[in-house]
C-alpha cells in the first residue's frame, strides 16, 4: 500500500473557462497502474472525472494519456515507476473534449484516407486462402500491431506544429498494406503517402517509435515510404520505360 498524489488535468467546457489541475491523494496497491488509480478516484473520490478505458491489457488503445509528460497507456504505466507526484494529462496535440478525453476525429479521418484495407493484387482463390509464406507474413506483420492509441501523435512534434501531417500511425498502417503480398494497392495509397503532408513532413525525430507500446516502429515505416517514393520519382523521371 502506498499513498499516491495524482495531479489530473480537469476541464469541463460547461463550467471551466480553461483546464486546470486537480490533486487527488489515492491509497494504491504496489502493483497498480495509473489506470487503477484513476478508477479508484472515479469510484471513491470523484465520480465526475472523465476518461476512456476498457481492456486493461494494452490492446484496445483507449487509455492513452500523458503521464508525467510522456505519452503512455494508463493501463501499462506502473505506479512503481513514478516515485513522486504523478501528473496525468490528456494526450498532447489533440483538443480536449473533457478532462482526459480528447477529440480524435482528425486521426480517424486520416486513417480512412490512406485506404487501410486490402486492394487485392489478384482475384481471390475459390474456396481457398491466398498463399502467404511465414516470410511474407513477417514482412508486414509488425505494422499490423498498431492499436490506434495515438501515443505516436502525442509524441510527434511535427504533428503538433503541422496538424495537417498525416502522422505516424496512419502512414504505418498504409505501409502495412503496401507490404502485404496479397495487396496491389500501393499506387492508390501513394497520393496521400507521397504528398508533402504525407511521409515528407516527417523529419525523423523518431519519437513515435520510442513511445509506441506495441513496438510497431512507425518511424521505420515512414522512412521506408520515403525511400520507395524516391525510387518512384527516379523511375518516373530518369527511367520512364521501367514504369508500367
Amino acid at each position: 500500500m502506498r499513498q499516491v498524489e495524482l495531479e489530473v488535468l480537469r476541464y469541463n467546457p460547461e463550467t471551466d473557462r480553461e483546464p486546470h489541475f486537480q490533486r487527488y491523494a489515492v491509497d494504491c496497491q504496489e502493483e497498480w497502474v495509473v489506470l487503477d488509480a484513476l478508477n479508484h478516484v472515479k469510484e471513491t473520490l470523484d465520480p465526475t472525472l472523465s476518461y476512456r478505458w476498457s481492456c486493461h491489457m494494452a490492446v484496445c488503445g483507449s487509455c492513452g494519456m500523458m503521464v508525467n509528460g510522456e505519452p503512455k497507456l494508463a493501463c501499462k504505466a506502473f505506479l512503481r515507476d513514478y516515485p513522486g507526484v504523478i501528473r496525468v494529462e490528456p494526450l498532447r496535440h489533440f483538443p480536449v473534449e473533457r478532462d482526459l478525453v480528447t477529440v480524435i476525429d482528425d486521426f480517424v479521418a486520416k486513417l480512412a484516407r490512406v485506404k487501410p484495407y486490402l486492394i487485392p493484387k489478384d482475384k481471390a482463390p475459390e474456396a481457398a486462402e491466398f498463399r502467404q509464406t511465414p516470410a511474407q507474413l513477417k514482412r508486414y506483420k509488425q505494422f499490423t500491431l498498431c492499436i490506434n492509441c495515438m501515443l505516436c501523435y502525442a509524441a510527434c512534434p511535427e504533428y503538433g506544429l503541422i496538424p495537417k501531417y498525416l502522422g505516424p500511425a496512419a502512414i504505418a498502417l498504409a505501409h502495412r498494406w503496401n507490404r502485404d503480398s496479397r495487396d496491389g494497392g500501393r499506387d492508390a495509397r501513394q497520393e496521400e503517402l507521397a504528398a508533402t503532408e504525407g511521409a515528407w513532413e516527417c523529419s525523423f525525430v523518431g519519437a513515435c517509435s520510442e513511445v509506441c507500446p506495441e513496438h510497431v516502429d512507425p518511424a521505420g515505416a515512414i522512412q521506408q515510404v520515403k525511400i520507395e517514393s524516391t525510387v518512384d520519382w527516379y523511375q518516373a523521371h530518369l527511367m520512364p520505360w521501367t514504369k508500367k
Binding site: G69, E70, P95, V96, A207, E210
Partner: peptide, 17 residues
C-alpha cells in the same frame, strides 16, 4: 473542445527532443 497552445517548450520535455 480546448486546443492547448503549442510552444517551443516541447524541445526540453525529453532528452530525445
Amino acid at each position: 473542445p480546448y486546443a492547448r497552445p503549442i510552444t517551443s517548450e516541447w524541445i526540453f520535455r525529453h532528452p530525445r527532443y
